[in-house]
Computed example of a mutant assay.
Amino acid sequence: MTAPAGNPPVIVVMGVSGSGKSTVGRMLAQRLGREFGDADDLHSPGNVDKMGRGVPLTDEDRWPWLREVARWIEDRVAANVPAVMACSALRREYRRLLIPRPHEVRLVYLKGDRDLIARRMAARRGHFFKPDLLDSQFRDLEPPGPDEDPITVDAVDPAEEVVRRIVEALDADG
């Protein structure tokens, strides 16, 4: 399986916790016939424990994790393996690490307001990320700017509709 011409090998689906990154990313990967990766699976046990106790991660906690995510992405790019990675990628400096060459990685931003995300998180079961950490996510969030050429999709819509809009935007890119 190789990435189709005109589309970057890797698509990064970003947003705050609870925006639907994993659900949308998994569905998008399936629809496009791509490998799926979830950055949550690459967290260290210490990070998972910290978030499970309701303690926000610091940059010191995040950088080793982000380097693992960047390595996963780079491995797929180098092998020209089409993939989708779900990752919060909250800050611009994190995205610079994850997406050093924008022509090889496309950014999708799932945008949602705090009330919507809080309702989703309250309904979510079995996830290590505690809902009381949501404010720290919005505090750290730096929405991607036009220079990052994101596909921005409103997270309020059902996942199937979000995926449809992403696929339309990718098709429009060529």
Rank of each mutant, 00 (worst) to 15 (best):
residue 54 G to Y: 03
residue 103 H to I: 14
residue 62 R to S: 08
residue 7 N to H: 14
residue 92 R to C: 08
residue 5 A to F: 06
residue 77 V to D: 06
residue 141 L to Y: 01
residue 110 L to K: 01
residue 82 P to I: 11
residue 51 M to P: 11
residue 115 D to V: 14
residue 5 A to H: 08
residue 92 R to G: 10
residue 14 M to E: 08
residue 45 P to Y: 10
residue 117 I to Y: 03
residue 98 L to D: 03
residue 82 P to F: 10
residue 123 A to E: 14
residue 108 V to G: 14
residue 54 G to C: 13
residue 75 D to M: 12
residue 121 M to F: 04
residue 148 E to G: 05
residue 133 L to C: 10
residue 37 G to C: 02
residue 132 D to L: 11
residue 143 P to Y: 00
residue 27 M to G: 00
residue 82 P to Q: 12
residue 20 G to R: 06
residue 77 V to N: 05
residue 32 L to G: 07
residue 125 R to I: 02
residue 124 R to Q: 09
residue 62 R to V: 07
residue 100 P to A: 10
residue 125 R to S: 15
residue 52 G to V: 10
residue 55 V to H: 09
residue 133 L to D: 12
residue 117 I to K: 03
residue 99 I to P: 06
residue 136 S to L: 03
residue 17 S to E: 06
residue 53 R to P: 03
residue 55 V to N: 12
residue 42 L to Q: 14
residue 13 V to I: 11
residue 116 L to V: 13
residue 141 L to T: 00
residue 126 G to M: 00
residue 50 K to H: 02
residue 101 R to I: 10
residue 36 F to P: 07
residue 75 D to K: 12
residue 69 V to T: 01
residue 33 G to D: 12
residue 12 V to S: 12
residue 81 V to H: 15
residue 14 M to G: 10
residue 56 P to N: 12
residue 89 A to L: 05
residue 133 L to M: 15
residue 87 C to S: 07
residue 145 G to Y: 00
residue 53 R to V: 07
residue 48 V to S: 05
residue 64 P to S: 09
residue 44 S to L: 03
residue 72 W to D: 05
residue 95 R to I: 04
residue 49 D to W: 05
residue 98 L to Y: 09
residue 30 Q to Y: 00
residue 39 A to L: 09
residue 60 E to P: 01
residue 59 D to Y: 03
residue 118 A to V: 01
residue 21 K to Q: 01
residue 108 V to P: 11
residue 94 Y to N: 07
residue 9 P to D: 07
residue 35 E to N: 12
residue 71 R to E: 10
residue 119 R to H: 09
residue 36 F to E: 03
residue 118 A to P: 00
residue 6 G to Q: 13
residue 42 L to H: 10
residue 8 P to K: 13
residue 18 G to W: 06
